[in-house]
Design a protein around this nucleic acid. Structure first.
Length: 262
DNA sequence: AGTACCACCTGACGGC
DNA sequence: TGCCGTCAGGTGGTAC
Protein backbone atom coordinates (compact mmCIF):
# COMPACT_ATOMS: atom_id res chain seq x y z
CA UNK A 1 0.00 0.00 0.00
CA UNK A 2 2.41 2.65 -1.11
CA UNK A 3 1.73 5.91 0.69
CA UNK A 4 4.16 8.79 1.04
CA UNK A 5 6.71 6.95 3.24
CA UNK A 6 6.81 3.99 0.88
CA UNK A 7 7.22 6.22 -2.16
CA UNK A 8 9.95 8.21 -0.42
CA UNK A 9 11.75 4.92 0.14
CA UNK A 10 11.32 3.99 -3.53
CA UNK A 11 12.80 7.37 -4.42
CA UNK A 12 15.87 6.76 -2.31
CA UNK A 13 16.14 3.26 -3.73
CA UNK A 14 16.02 4.54 -7.28
CA UNK A 15 18.59 7.22 -6.40
CA UNK A 16 21.00 4.69 -4.94
CA UNK A 17 20.66 2.09 -7.68
CA UNK A 18 19.60 3.46 -11.03
CA UNK A 19 21.10 6.89 -11.75
CA UNK A 20 23.71 7.62 -14.43
CA UNK A 21 23.38 4.34 -16.33
CA UNK A 22 22.56 4.45 -20.01
CA UNK A 23 19.12 3.04 -20.72
CA UNK A 24 19.38 0.46 -23.49
CA UNK A 25 15.84 -0.86 -23.62
CA UNK A 26 12.42 -0.33 -22.09
CA UNK A 27 9.88 -3.14 -22.16
CA UNK A 28 6.29 -2.56 -21.11
CA UNK A 29 4.53 -5.90 -20.82
CA UNK A 30 1.08 -4.53 -20.17
CA UNK A 31 0.08 -1.19 -21.60
CA UNK A 32 -2.86 -0.77 -19.23
CA UNK A 33 -0.17 0.56 -16.87
CA UNK A 34 0.92 3.23 -19.33
CA UNK A 35 -0.79 6.58 -19.17
CA UNK A 36 -1.19 8.36 -22.53
CA UNK A 37 1.88 6.73 -24.01
CA UNK A 38 2.45 3.60 -26.09
CA UNK A 39 5.10 1.02 -25.19
CA UNK A 40 7.09 2.06 -28.25
CA UNK A 41 6.87 5.76 -27.46
CA UNK A 42 8.01 5.07 -23.90
CA UNK A 43 10.93 3.04 -25.22
CA UNK A 44 11.91 5.71 -27.71
CA UNK A 45 11.59 8.49 -25.13
CA UNK A 46 14.04 6.83 -22.74
CA UNK A 47 16.58 4.84 -24.73
CA UNK A 48 20.02 6.44 -24.85
CA UNK A 49 19.28 8.60 -21.80
CA UNK A 50 20.23 8.24 -18.15
CA UNK A 51 18.18 8.97 -15.06
CA UNK A 52 19.96 11.83 -13.33
CA UNK A 53 17.72 13.02 -10.51
CA UNK A 54 14.48 12.29 -8.71
CA UNK A 55 11.68 14.10 -6.97
CA UNK A 56 8.53 13.08 -5.17
CA UNK A 57 5.19 14.76 -4.69
CA UNK A 58 2.75 12.93 -2.48
CA UNK A 59 2.57 9.38 -3.79
CA UNK A 60 4.08 10.27 -7.18
CA UNK A 61 7.73 9.64 -8.01
CA UNK A 62 9.47 11.51 -10.83
CA UNK A 63 12.85 10.77 -12.31
CA UNK A 64 14.53 12.96 -14.90
CA UNK A 65 16.13 11.45 -17.96
CA UNK A 66 16.65 14.53 -20.12
CA UNK A 67 16.25 18.26 -20.05
CA UNK A 68 12.49 18.74 -19.57
CA UNK A 69 11.75 14.99 -19.66
CA UNK A 70 10.70 13.09 -16.58
CA UNK A 71 9.40 9.59 -16.04
CA UNK A 72 6.37 9.49 -13.73
CA UNK A 73 5.76 6.49 -11.49
CA UNK A 74 2.65 5.90 -9.43
CA UNK A 75 2.41 2.66 -7.47
CA UNK A 76 -1.29 2.17 -6.91
CA UNK A 77 -1.76 -0.24 -4.06
CA UNK A 78 0.73 -2.98 -4.70
CA UNK A 79 3.51 -1.40 -6.73
CA UNK A 80 7.23 -1.35 -5.98
CA UNK A 81 10.64 -1.10 -7.65
CA UNK A 82 13.27 -3.81 -7.87
CA UNK A 83 16.80 -3.33 -9.19
CA UNK A 84 18.17 -6.55 -10.63
CA UNK A 85 21.58 -7.89 -11.51
CA UNK A 86 20.09 -10.46 -13.83
CA UNK A 87 17.00 -9.98 -15.91
CA UNK A 88 16.07 -13.63 -15.50
CA UNK A 89 15.23 -12.77 -11.88
CA UNK A 90 12.31 -10.50 -12.80
CA UNK A 91 9.64 -10.67 -10.10
CA UNK A 92 6.21 -11.88 -11.13
CA UNK A 93 3.85 -9.04 -11.99
CA UNK A 94 6.68 -6.99 -13.47
CA UNK A 95 4.93 -4.56 -15.81
CA UNK A 96 7.80 -2.40 -17.09
CA UNK A 97 11.54 -3.08 -17.23
CA UNK A 98 14.22 -0.44 -17.76
CA UNK A 99 17.37 -2.22 -18.94
CA UNK A 100 20.73 -0.51 -18.52
CA UNK A 101 23.92 -0.81 -20.56
CA UNK A 102 25.69 -2.57 -17.68
CA UNK A 103 23.25 -5.51 -17.86
CA UNK A 104 21.34 -4.48 -14.76
CA UNK A 105 17.73 -3.45 -14.84
CA UNK A 106 15.03 -1.70 -12.90
CA UNK A 107 11.65 -3.43 -12.70
CA UNK A 108 8.38 -1.65 -12.04
CA UNK A 109 6.28 -4.33 -10.38
CA UNK A 110 2.58 -3.88 -9.87
CA UNK A 111 0.46 -6.88 -9.02
CA UNK A 112 -2.98 -5.27 -9.00
CA UNK A 113 -2.41 -3.03 -12.01
CA UNK A 114 -3.58 0.05 -10.16
CA UNK A 115 -0.34 1.93 -10.76
CA UNK A 116 0.67 4.13 -13.69
CA UNK A 117 3.75 4.98 -15.68
CA UNK A 118 3.84 8.22 -17.65
CA UNK A 119 6.20 10.81 -19.09
CA UNK A 120 6.00 14.54 -18.48
CA UNK A 121 7.95 17.64 -19.37
CA UNK A 122 7.46 19.18 -15.97
CA UNK A 123 6.60 17.48 -12.68
CA UNK A 124 5.08 20.64 -11.29
CA UNK A 125 2.83 20.95 -14.29
CA UNK A 126 1.88 17.28 -13.89
CA UNK A 127 1.02 17.88 -10.23
CA UNK A 128 -1.10 20.90 -11.18
CA UNK A 129 -2.93 18.97 -13.87
CA UNK A 130 -3.72 16.23 -11.37
CA UNK A 131 -4.96 18.90 -8.97
CA UNK A 132 -2.85 17.56 -6.13
CA UNK A 133 -2.57 19.49 -2.90
CA UNK A 134 0.74 20.33 -1.27
CA UNK A 135 3.05 17.50 -0.35
CA UNK A 136 2.47 16.40 3.24
CA UNK A 137 6.16 16.76 4.12
CA UNK A 138 6.83 19.97 2.21
CA UNK A 139 3.81 21.90 3.36
CA UNK A 140 4.12 24.30 6.30
CA UNK A 141 1.90 24.17 9.33
CA UNK A 142 0.20 27.40 8.23
CA UNK A 143 -0.47 25.95 4.77
CA UNK A 144 -1.87 22.80 6.34
CA UNK A 145 -4.23 24.72 8.59
CA UNK A 146 -5.30 26.91 5.68
CA UNK A 147 -5.91 23.89 3.43
CA UNK A 148 -8.22 22.30 5.99
CA UNK A 149 -9.83 25.46 7.31
CA UNK A 150 -13.38 26.23 6.28
CA UNK A 151 -14.13 22.65 5.26
CA UNK A 152 -17.03 20.63 6.53
CA UNK A 153 -16.25 16.99 5.98
CA UNK A 154 -14.58 14.50 8.28
CA UNK A 155 -10.94 14.95 9.22
CA UNK A 156 -10.01 11.58 7.82
CA UNK A 157 -11.52 12.15 4.40
CA UNK A 158 -9.68 15.48 4.26
CA UNK A 159 -6.35 13.89 5.25
CA UNK A 160 -6.67 11.22 2.58
CA UNK A 161 -7.98 13.61 -0.09
CA UNK A 162 -4.98 14.06 -2.39
CA UNK A 163 -6.26 17.38 -3.70
CA UNK A 164 -6.04 18.83 -0.17
CA UNK A 165 -2.83 17.16 1.07
CA UNK A 166 -0.80 14.82 -1.11
CA UNK A 167 0.76 11.75 0.41
CA UNK A 168 -1.35 10.24 3.18
CA UNK A 169 -3.39 7.12 2.56
CA UNK A 170 -5.71 5.06 4.67
CA UNK A 171 -3.13 3.54 6.99
CA UNK A 172 -1.08 6.62 7.80
CA UNK A 173 -4.15 8.80 8.17
CA UNK A 174 -5.35 6.38 10.87
CA UNK A 175 -1.92 6.51 12.51
CA UNK A 176 -1.75 10.31 12.50
CA UNK A 177 -5.23 10.63 14.00
CA UNK A 178 -4.40 8.00 16.60
CA UNK A 179 -1.27 9.94 17.60
CA UNK A 180 -3.26 13.17 17.66
CA UNK A 181 -6.05 11.54 19.71
CA UNK A 182 -8.67 12.65 17.22
CA UNK A 183 -11.43 10.34 16.01
CA UNK A 184 -11.35 9.75 12.24
CA UNK A 185 -15.00 10.71 11.83
CA UNK A 186 -14.59 14.05 13.67
CA UNK A 187 -16.07 16.92 11.69
CA UNK A 188 -13.57 19.57 10.65
CA UNK A 189 -15.87 22.28 11.94
CA UNK A 190 -15.52 20.79 15.43
CA UNK A 191 -11.72 21.09 15.34
CA UNK A 192 -9.99 24.38 16.14
CA UNK A 193 -6.65 25.67 14.93
CA UNK A 194 -4.80 24.11 17.85
CA UNK A 195 -6.27 20.71 17.00
CA UNK A 196 -5.17 21.12 13.38
CA UNK A 197 -1.70 22.27 14.41
CA UNK A 198 -1.43 19.19 16.60
CA UNK A 199 -2.49 16.92 13.75
CA UNK A 200 0.10 18.59 11.52
CA UNK A 201 2.87 17.98 14.08
CA UNK A 202 1.88 14.35 14.53
CA UNK A 203 1.73 13.94 10.74
CA UNK A 204 5.32 15.11 10.43
CA UNK A 205 6.47 12.85 13.23
CA UNK A 206 4.70 9.81 11.87
CA UNK A 207 5.87 10.25 8.30
CA UNK A 208 9.47 11.05 9.29
CA UNK A 209 9.62 8.11 11.63
CA UNK A 210 8.04 5.74 9.10
CA UNK A 211 10.68 6.73 6.55
CA UNK A 212 13.44 6.26 9.16
CA UNK A 213 12.04 2.80 9.90
CA UNK A 214 12.15 2.08 6.17
CA UNK A 215 8.42 1.34 6.41
CA UNK A 216 9.19 -1.78 8.39
CA UNK A 217 6.41 -2.16 10.96
CA UNK A 218 8.67 -4.11 13.33
CA UNK A 219 10.98 -1.10 13.48
CA UNK A 220 8.21 1.38 14.28
CA UNK A 221 7.40 2.24 17.90
CA UNK A 222 5.22 -0.39 19.53
CA UNK A 223 3.14 2.45 20.95
CA UNK A 224 1.88 3.15 17.44
CA UNK A 225 -1.45 1.94 16.16
CA UNK A 226 0.12 0.34 13.08
CA UNK A 227 1.47 -2.81 14.78
CA UNK A 228 -1.94 -3.22 16.46
CA UNK A 229 -4.21 -2.37 13.57
CA UNK A 230 -6.68 -5.23 14.10
CA UNK A 231 -10.20 -5.20 15.42
CA UNK A 232 -10.38 -5.89 19.16
CA UNK A 233 -6.61 -5.70 19.68
CA UNK A 234 -5.75 -3.82 22.89
CA UNK A 235 -4.81 -0.17 22.38
CA UNK A 236 -1.06 0.13 23.14
CA UNK A 237 -1.79 3.32 25.10
CA UNK A 238 -4.77 2.42 27.25
CA UNK A 239 -5.70 -1.20 26.60
CA UNK A 240 -9.20 -0.52 25.24
CA UNK A 241 -10.27 -2.66 22.30
CA UNK A 242 -9.44 -1.11 18.92
CA UNK A 243 -12.57 -0.44 16.89
CA UNK A 244 -13.12 -0.59 13.17
CA UNK A 245 -15.57 1.53 11.25
CA UNK A 246 -16.31 1.76 7.57
CA UNK A 247 -15.98 5.31 6.33
CA UNK A 248 -16.91 5.79 2.69
CA UNK A 249 -15.71 2.36 1.72
CA UNK A 250 -12.47 2.54 3.73
CA UNK A 251 -11.77 0.89 7.05
CA UNK A 252 -10.90 3.28 9.85
CA UNK A 253 -9.17 1.84 12.93
CA UNK A 254 -9.17 3.86 16.14
CA UNK A 255 -9.18 3.63 19.91
CA UNK A 256 -12.65 4.52 21.24
CA UNK A 257 -11.13 5.60 24.54
CA UNK A 258 -8.01 7.61 23.56
CA UNK A 259 -9.76 9.19 20.59
CA UNK A 260 -12.92 10.50 22.22
CA UNK A 261 -16.01 11.55 20.31
CA UNK A 262 -16.45 15.31 19.90
C1' DA B 1 -18.96 20.85 -1.01
C1' DG B 2 -19.27 16.50 0.76
C1' DT B 3 -20.49 11.71 0.63
C1' DA B 4 -21.70 7.24 -0.90
C1' DC B 5 -20.96 3.92 -4.08
C1' DC B 6 -18.93 1.68 -8.12
C1' DA B 7 -15.16 0.23 -11.09
C1' DC B 8 -10.53 -0.93 -12.00
C1' DC B 9 -7.44 -5.15 -10.54
C1' DT B 10 -5.45 -9.67 -8.30
C1' DG B 11 -4.68 -12.78 -4.63
C1' DA B 12 -5.69 -14.35 -0.02
C1' DC B 13 -8.95 -16.16 2.97
C1' DG B 14 -13.10 -18.03 5.17
C1' DG B 15 -17.39 -20.52 4.60
C1' DC B 16 -19.76 -24.23 2.82
C1' DT C 1 -11.16 -30.17 -3.04
C1' DG C 2 -13.00 -26.41 -5.08
C1' DC C 3 -16.11 -22.76 -5.78
C1' DC C 4 -17.73 -18.19 -4.28
C1' DG C 5 -18.14 -13.98 -1.92
C1' DT C 6 -15.52 -10.61 0.40
C1' DC C 7 -11.76 -7.87 1.41
C1' DA C 8 -7.52 -5.19 0.75
C1' DG C 9 -7.16 0.22 -0.82
C1' DG C 10 -5.30 4.28 -4.46
C1' DT C 11 -7.72 6.71 -7.74
C1' DG C 12 -11.34 8.41 -10.59
C1' DG C 13 -16.00 8.79 -12.05
C1' DT C 14 -20.96 9.38 -11.14
C1' DA C 15 -25.08 10.39 -8.76
C1' DC C 16 -27.32 12.65 -5.04
Amino acid sequence: MPELPDVELFRKYLESTSLRQRIDRVDAFDDRILEDISPKALHDALVGHRFDSTMRHGKYLFTRHAEDRWLVLHFGMTGYLQYLDEEKDLPSHTRVVFSFENGKSLAFVCQRMLGHVAVTEDPEEYVRARELGGDALEMSRAEFVAALGGRHGSIKSALTNQSIIAGLGNIYADEVLYQAKVRPDSRLRDLDEDDLAGIYDRMHEVVDRAVDSEVNVSRMPDTWLLPHRREGEPCPRCGAAIEVRKMSGRTAYFCPSCQPER
